[in-house]
Design a protein around this nucleic acid. Structure first.
Lengths: 77, 77
DNA sequence: ATACTAAGTCAATTATTTTTGACACATCAA
DNA sequence: TTGATGTGTCAAAAATAATTGACTTAGTAT
């Protein structure tokens, strides 16, 4: 019931950094390229909730970075 | 409306193989270790739907394999 | 034959992710 | 000032992931 999703372990991402590294790509452009709404990109960048696995893969692909350079996971235990 | 999820690009996984490689771990055991139901593991192994990003990370972690050795993505374009 | 384990399936429900549309705010250019 | 762009936020709805419980099938053991 919390506003933000709680995960076992912690997922983080570098989308924002990599977006700027990738010719200053805007949220809107990234959203269009991966086929989701701009709000979805905002939410993911700000860790309001994690992307689906498919979306995570597409984002890494569009940013031209290996998956593990975009998303990382730190186990709880 | 389709029974199985359709993704842009193709996600596949080696959970089943790695489960056996990991001391013949059963679906039930894997489910318990990652904290989901057995049916969820069945569904993911059989590609009925993809796991959430968090679950994907936890599965890789429990199987003791790098993420990219468990899940792979083949872009549509 | 009976029982147990592993795996698969189905339906119905709950939880989470994603969408749309609207609005706000700051920066920059005309 | 006016307009455009980039970002952030909210609420309601739609789509998808995950749950529970029940049932089936195959293999293997007692």
């Amino acid at each position: 019931m919390g506003k933000d999703a709680v995960i076992k372990g912690q997922i983080s991402n570098n989308i924002r950094k990599l977006r700027f590294a990738s010719d200053e790509m805007t949220q809107k452009e990234l959203a269009a390229k991966v086929g989701v709404s701009r709000q979805t990109i905002v939410a993911i960048e700000k860790d309001h909730y994690p992307p689906s696995l498919a979306l995570a893969f597409m984002i890494a692909h569009v940013l031209g970075e290996p998956f593990q350079d975009v998303f990382s996971y730190k186990p709880a235990d």
